[in-house]
Structures are given as C-alpha cells and as structure tokens.
C-alpha cells in the first residue's frame, strides 16, 4: 500500500508543476504584451523630437490556450493523486491538512476551468492559478508525516458524513477563490481602462455566479457539520471556533448577496466585500493553527 501512497504523492507533485507552468502561462496571457512605439518628429528649426509610447496589448491566444491545457493536465493529475490515496485509505482522503489542501487544489482548478469554459474568460486564471500554486507550495512545506495514510481516529469514523461535510467545504472555498479572482479583476477593470480585460459587468456576474455556488455549499457545510455534531456529540451547535469561523464566512457572503440589491453598492463595494469575504475564507481554512476546540484534527 505504501507504493500506492507514494505514487499518489508523485501525481500530486507532477500536478503541482503543471499548475505552476499553467500559472506562468496565464500571467503571460493576462498581462499581455508591452508594445513600445517610437515616433520622431522633425521641427521647422531642424531639431528632432522623439516620443515613446508604451501600450499594453492582449496576450497571445496560444499562450492562454496552453495555460488552459496545462491546468486541465494538473487537474487530471490531482484527481489521480486523490483517487490513489482513496484506494490506499479506504475512504475519500479529507482527514488532515495535506489531504484537505490537495482536494482544494483539485477542486479550485476544476471549478476555475468550468467557469473559464462557461464565461469564455481566461484572464481570471492569472489570479486563480497562482492561488492554487501557493496552496501547492503550502502542501509541500507541511510535515512529511502528513503524507502518510493514517487510519481515522474514532471521532472521524463517519466517512460518508466526513466526505460530504469536508468535501463540500472545499467546494465552497474553491468557488469563493474564483469569486475573489473575479472581484480583483472587476476592481482593476472598473478603475483602469484595460482594453483586453472582460467587461466589468461580466466580471461582476461571474463573481456573483461563483458565490451562488459557494454560498449554498457553505450553508450545506454548516448544516452537515451540525448533523454530524449531533450524531457525534449530541448537539448540533457547540460554538466551536471552527464552526463560528465558518458561520462568520457565511455571514460575510450573506452581506455580499444583500448588497447586490442595494443601489450604489452593486459593483465596487460588492467587489470589496468579496475580497473581505475571501479573507474570512482564508481565516477559516487556516484557523486550525490558532483555534482550540473540537476541530483540532488537521494534524497541524
């Protein structure tokens, strides 16, 4: 079984490199090309005035397409890694930060690519893919013992609920990462005239659509967590820091959804709330480092 776990890690490693290469392609595509024009004007008194004009132009379509290809390649490798680890563990691997973060990398990549396909927007990859690469780097620096497959402790011995509760949490975080990227590009597109960026309306809609996936998912996370807590601890809500951090995140996205129906709030202010909300996601995600309480399973 050790060989399967090792193979799973190799797939993760290969996937990480694919994502890293993909991120470079996306950044090159999004930043585009810098075209410098030089003009020389001869004046009547015989002198010459030289002017330079630097312009940013859309990146090469080929580089963008290659970035997408590499991202799909990374997603497939990541899926393979998780699949092999599932075989080795006997359940979907979601019981420590290594497994949790590997699943995040897979789902963030997949969801981003689905949104790219749905909206026809590739520039978003310049934000999402570096996030994925940062997460892969984090996984690399986690203690090596987390890469081993360990049996579930009694508190986690409910694989169906663990898969549903934790898996949907990662799905929510992944879609929120896409919403965050859309909000960043929205703020760029609405403040600067960047001709090759998608329209601000499209980015606003994309961010909203990502939240319409993430917010119900986050609601399900809270509900399934409550169901599991009721089954394991006899109460569906314990005010545990990880629970309340998830509730905090949910409330911030609730604020975002309400502001969209407020005149003067849709657009810039909503996008800023999305940035804050993603801060809450990061706080909840890495909260295990500072939280005590009942969710101290992450192995960190």
């Amino acid at each position: 079984m050790d060989a399967v776990v090792r193979l799973s890690f190799y797939c993760f490693a290969a996937g990480s490199f694919a994502f890293a290469a993909s991120a470079i392609c996306y950044l090159a595509y999004a930043i585009g090309r810098i075209r410098v024009r030089r003009m020389a004007l001869a004046t009547p008194d015989g002198t010459t005035v030289v002017a330079h004009d630097a312009r940013l132009e859309p990146g090469s379509q080929g580089v963008g397409r290659f970035g997408t290809f590499l991202a799909w390649f990374g997603v497939v490798l990541q899926a393979l890694s998780i699949g092999l680890r599932t075989v080795a563990a006997g359940h979907v691997p979601l019981s420590n930060m290594y497994e949790f973060s590997s699943m995040f990398i897979f789902l963030a990549g997949l969801i981003y690519l689905l949104f790219e396909r749905w909206y026809g927007v590739r520039q978003l990859g310049a934000i999402v893919l570096p996030l994925i690469v940062a997460m892969a780097a984090y996984v690399w620096v986690l203690p090596a013992n987390l890469r081993e497959v360990n049996p579930l402790i009694p508190a986690l011995q409910n694989p169906p609920l663990m898969t549903a509760h934790v898996g949907i949490a990662i799905l929510a975080y992944a879609t929120f990462a896409v919403a965050f990227a859309a909000a960043v590009l929205y703020l760029v597109a609405s403040h600067w005239r960047v001709s090759w960026l998608p329209s601000a309306d499209l980015l606003d809609d994309l961010g909203f659509r990502a939240v319409t996936v993430g917010f119900p998912a986050m609601s399900l996370v809270l509900i399934l967590g409550s169901v599991w807590a009721y089954r394991a601890w006899g109460t569906y809500w314990q005010w545990d820091p990880k629970e309340t951090a998830a509730l905090f995140t949910w409330l911030i996205y609730g604020v975002y959804l309400h502001t969209r129906s407020l005149r003067g709030w849709r657009g810039n202010r909503s996008a800023i709330i999305l940035l804050i909300a993603f801060g809450a996601v990061i706080f909840t995600y890495f909260g295990n480092y500072v939280f005590g309480g009942l969710h101290a399973y992450g192995g960190v």
Partner: peptide, 8 residues
C-alpha cells in the same frame, strides 16, 4: 467570539 476561542 471566534477569536476568543483562539490564541490570537
């Protein structure tokens, strides 16, 4: 309340 339950 969340931070109260943490080392922050």
């Amino acid at each position: 309340g969340t931070l109260r339950g943490s080392s922050v």
